[in-house]
Design a protein around this nucleic acid. Structure first.
Lengths: 340, 340
DNA sequence: TTGAAAGCGATACCAC
DNA sequence: GTGGTATCGCTTTCAA
């Protein structure tokens, strides 16, 4: 049976209230007593009991704020599902999750939203935002004030966040190369359609892809690299024009959104032998895989990212951050028609 | 704020004790009062509070028993890791997990072990055992006495178990075929090395594989189908002999254990173009993938199976089984060198 | 600066 | 049959 506050109190010859004060580093406690009690607690291996803690804490509600640039970007729907699953699982414990919806990756828009969140009195935050100095600074003031922040899906290392929850973009890119190497040993003429050159994850996927091609000894040429801003219309037009002027293209690496657009161009031009390398499991991509137009896609468990992000915040509050939270890297998932 | 027993008691004009009795269908309660209280609880939308429940339940310890034929079978190590993760996560709630280790799939050995477990006073059990009538009956007496049972990794439908937690074997087989179809379009001459013809999961993988080959319009011949009993020495010898007398073989479908043995035979005979279709993520398989001798393997998230199995038992106890537990089917995972 | 006591929600047990 | 009360572990007053 685990050690309780009551037992520590008895052992130290003080009251439970005092032990509680010591354990939470509250003020107004005799330093000598504090030291002694702390030592005793450590020695006895005290671990707070969640159920007791939660029950007592029920008087004040816990609110988490989750920021997401999801407007117009269906990828994030699954992340939201994860936030909601965590919320419903923690409902008993008085946890509520607010989701703040943003459109796109404009720095100022993100800064304004984060500033607003900082004053909203959240007990913790999940942030999916840009990794730029201005935003790092903004987050730092939040974390420094004792409010835990988890970076979800895309990391902001220098911000005091307790951990990153998301995918390994480099590995995802390498995996795409690995799959390509299983399918074909021939020299590849590749068109790269990126989302944005400003987003680190996108660049890392490309980097991982190239590394992977080299590791697998796949000879290749990059015919062109373009930006489609996760927009299917842009992606369609760009892909179409390039395909027309480059009949030698054998594969298209679509880094983020925009897969359906590229796929449409390929279909229209009847370039059926082209291999499309896709990411994530959006409905349109799944459909294309079922049709056979795309062979596979590389997923990143977005639902689990949302879920784990909120759970990490909650654990941090429960354990008072004593456990240095380490990053949580979701699996790099390969989906073909048969295992969807 | 959620409805509590106290509130229901006040609304019904009875004591909390009575409400508690009604909610648990205990005896010694006036049917009229019972009906009225139950109705009120439903109408007010009462959902028991986990934290309160757990705290109160702490007085009596919860012990789960988990049966596993893991001796000599490294696959189950990950399942055990999952059991242990669940145990440590539920430690606060007074949960202990006992693991009962068995060797092989001898019916009588399993029956004896299950009988012994039945008398051990467990609050719930996870069972990985054989789906035969004698065992079904044994389990049924346990479930009928009110003790929840979860079938883990391999299902026992007619046993009163609350749910199955494990993989979809058919889908796993189809996925192997799907991957094969990405790699090669040529007619396949296939050797099938099964674990045991007695184990349903193994047969299902074969069935799924054949279905998949047909769906993907891969022409094929089954050169031979043998049983290797998850033993690498058997697997090595069988594979070796058949490869020698059948130079036409293009691929080997190894249903369960025994992959390292088959791989050794292929390597020794320098039949490097043969495609080995493997399952699970054992260290030796991972090694072979890294070496490039095997292209991929199909996993089933064994750790998650163990974890979820125990968690399901716990939830069932907490919610009094009001929620009909549905099966939990783990993902069919494709692993290549790059995403391991 | 500290102790004592109330209370969070659910359960168990003892009276009546 | 039913009500009252102590209890689980922890937090938070309110006195002292």
């Amino acid at each position: 049976m685990a050690v309780t506050i009551k037992e520590i109190a008895a052992a130290a010859g003080v009251s439970r209230g005092t032990v509680d004060r010591v354990l939470h580093n509250r003020k107004d406690v005799n330093p000598d007593v504090a030291r002694q009690v702390q030592e005793l607690a450590d020695r006895m291996g005290y671990i707070p009991n969640r159920a007791g803690k939660i029950l007592a804490a029920r008087k004040q509600q816990i609110r988490f704020g989750c920021l997401l640039p999801d407007l117009g970007n269906p990828f994030f729907e699954k992340v939201i599902d994860g936030f909601k699953r965590a919320e419903s699982e923690l409902k008993d414990y008085g946890v509520t999750v607010d989701i703040i919806h943003l459109r796109g990756f404009t720095v100022q828009v993100h800064i304004d939203a984060i500033k607003k969140m900082a004053t909203a009195g959240y007990s913790g935050m999940c942030l999916t935002t840009l990794d730029v100095p201005e935003i790092q600074k903004e987050i730092y003031t939040i974390t420094h004030s004792g409010v835990p922040v988890v970076s979800v899906n895309t990391d902001i290392p220098d911000s005091g966040r307790i951990c990153y929850v998301g995918t390994d973009y480099i590995k995802a890119g390498r995996t795409a190369a690995g799959m390509l190497s299983l399918i074909s040993k021939e020299r590849q003429k590749i068109l790269i359609v990126s989302g944005s050159f400003q987003i680190r994850g996108h660049n890392e996927r490309i980097k991982g892809f190239k590394t992977g091609l080299e590791e697998h000894k796949i000879a290749y040429d990059i015919v062109d690299t373009v930006e489609a801003f996760d927009d299917n219309e842009d992606s369609y037009k760009l892909t179409r024009d390039i395909l027309i002027s480059h009949s030698e293209i054998t594969s298209i690496f679509v880094v983020a959104g925009g897969v359906p657009g590229a796929y449409r161009a390929v279909k229209e031009l009847q370039r059926n032998t082209i291999i499309i390398l896709a990411f994530d499991e959006l409905p349109e991509i799944k459909q294309a895989i079922k049709e056979g137009g795309i062979g596979f896609t590389i997923g990143q468990e977005p639902e689990l990212q949302g879920y784990t992000g909120v759970m990490r915040l909650f654990s941090w509050l429960m354990e008072e951050g004593k456990n240095q939270s380490h990053d949580y890297i979701t699996q790099t998932i390969i989906k073909i028609a048969d295992n969807m």
